[in-house]
Design a protein around this nucleic acid. Structure first.
Lengths: 349, 349
DNA sequence: ATGAAAGCGCTAACAA
DNA sequence: TTGTTAGCGCTTTCAT
């Protein structure tokens, strides 16, 4: 109590202690520890050994403060961490960056532009070498300004800035899915998606429109429900569509969380899938494999996205990319057909 | 090209610039910015205004380097970020800590003790004020040593160190679930869980044993499969149990990922639930609501766990807790009965 | 190949 | 209440 902790090391050793113990200068120690080739190999080894033996851990703050050009940290800004679309990408990027000794700093905005601004400020305070971000729909101008001054890569959502990014080609994916249904003969197809605020909501609806056009259908053939991206909203939207007098013979859902609610509504309605209704949902196929029958899903290969994100980030850090043309890469989600797909059933009028 | 970026601020301003512009000392600026009450309010306001207007962001590294006692960072070490058991807790803790201006640094071990050691070292290098960790089963001695010298809170898994922690009382939860089945009349109950390596695997199996004892059953009544915590293993384990000549009338699963595989196997087996088999799985009820019928789940209230973790962390940081008795808090997962539960069906011998 | 010394941007004694 | 002056622990010229 109150007595200093006995023993050799109170708070770990630093370069000075190492230098003194070995009778060299701190400069030499620093060079050896950073693998400079300008140190006698034998000496360097001795220094590293000593450091290891004494559990030396470099103070990141000191290092970052003196060395202006450090890739010690990368900021990662996402709306949620409990959504696979974001968490999977975060995990993958973290893994890949760890190889270079770069530490990922994860921050969560919960789609709040104010929090987003705070986070980005904070990251600038940490002097992260770069930022990977999935911006909030209402991103603040001040945030944009801040982002303008560091290497940035965005994913899933667009900020409107001319910066490199990786995105899901949801438009194409939805058009493909729609096409699959029309090929099966469906002419009345319900769509449940998210509202326009969310940029992928737009793309997905655009995809549906593309599909309609291609099949020669118009808006009256495709009853649409745009709702908030929550489970209950999906449930209600599906219920509304299924209670229509002239109800659709197929349903496409444009959102992972929505899909859970929709699947539940379909189940409770007692409508038989795929005999009386074909169903394509959006999200992780593993989840929807539980459904009876297993549901056809549009699923996104997040690891690919992470790959590209890290690649673009490296380009941005190295200043490889041309200033003018911000690289944009698209990943196309995969349609996995399953037991929930079939031709429309002619029910008696 | 090559020309310095024109304009007033190259890399943002610092305390010196503010001090010079306002004709005060850096100390005064620092005090004003940190809300010290020893600055003339009017002056303080003027300083803060100026700082805001010029987009001042404190350099965290400099701050951390000079101020030894800072709560700027908390390290968070978990095996996976794409598993709700960890990601949900991380998100909650992050949210709660953000209120105090504490930044959470998330690191992923993937259950690799070497990576864990690296991460913890790294966190020490960042001089995080504390660490919240869900240790790997094979945690290294060196890691333990490092953890001994900072405020630490563990959750979900135990390191064996005498440090505060929050855990799920899986033992009790499993015993309760088992009890529910025996109350319904089941005398032959299959258990599918994870191997002993994972500390919660042990607790869950212990719970099953408690339930057996209470119901007067012995090991031969409870065919058990201990497997790796992956979906396919769950599928295979369930298949094995369901193909037994004297097959169980009920099944309990002790793991979220396992449960997905088990549910799938049950579906494919064609066995009718709950008529010929009662089923209790572990995990998020939303997932298993998709099943037909919706499955009874044992689900863990992760937000509560996060609450306690943050609480314990604060205690540890404040040195509130007595050195000897490391606080341990238990959270009991909730059994949500559902359509998958019923009395055993007497099938002809 | 090595050392001496000057910072990086901030906070914290100690003076005034 | 404000200013002066040291550092925090490291990297990095510039000498040697």
């Amino acid at each position: 109590m109150g007595t200093e902790r006995a023993g050799s090391q109170r708070r770990g050793i630093g370069v000075v202690e190492i230098a003194q113990s070995l009778g060299v200068s701190t400069a030499t120690v620093s060079r050896a520890l950073n693998g400079s080739d300008k140190v006698r190999p034998e000496l360097a080894d001795r220094i590293r050994e000593f450091a290891d033996a004494h559990g030396y851990v470099a103070n990141r703050h000191a290092r970052a403060l003196s060395a202006t050009t450090s890739r010690a940290f990368i900021g990662f800004v996402i709306p949620y961490v409990d959504t696979p679309a974001f968490s999977t990408v975060a995990a993958e990027c973290g893994r890949r960056l760890a190889r270079d000794g770069t530490q990922l700093i994860l921050t969560i905005t919960e789609n709040d532009p104010e929090r987003e601004l705070d986070q980005v400020k904070e990251l600038r305070g940490i002097r992260t070498a770069g930022i990977v971000i999935s911006p909030t729909p209402g991103i603040l101008d001040e945030t944009k300004e801040l982002l303008g001054s560091v290497p940035v890569v965005e994913f899933h959502r667009r900020s409107g800035l001319a910066i490199p990014g990786v995105f899901m080609d949801d438009r194409k994916a939805m058009a493909d899915a729609f096409g699959r249904l029309t090929e099966l003969g469906h002419r009345r197809i319900g769509y449940i998606g998210t509202t326009q605020d969310l940029s992928n909501g737009i793309a997905r609806q655009d995809g549906i429109r593309d599909g309609m056009r291609l099949a020669g259908l118009d808006a009256t053939d495709v009853p649409t429900q745009l709702v908030a991206p929550v489970e209950s909203a999906g449930f209600e939207a599906a219920t509304r569509l299924l209670e229509m007098p002239d109800r659709p013979t197929a349903l496409i859902v444009g959102g992972g969380t929505l899909s859970l609610g929709v699947a539940d509504a379909v189940r409770q309605s007692g409508i038989e899938v795929p005999r009386d209704l074909s169903l394509i949902v959006y999200g992780d196929p593993r989840w929807f494999a539980l459904h009876k029958p297993p549901l056809a899903t549009i699923s996104a290969p997040y690891d690919q996205l992470a790959d590209h994100a890290v690649g673009l980030l490296h380009d941005a850090l190295d200043g490889t990319s041309a200033d003018g043309g911000a690289a944009v890469r698209m990943i196309t989600p995969i349609l996995r057909p399953n037991g929930s797909l079939g031709p429309p059933h002619q029910h008696t009028p």
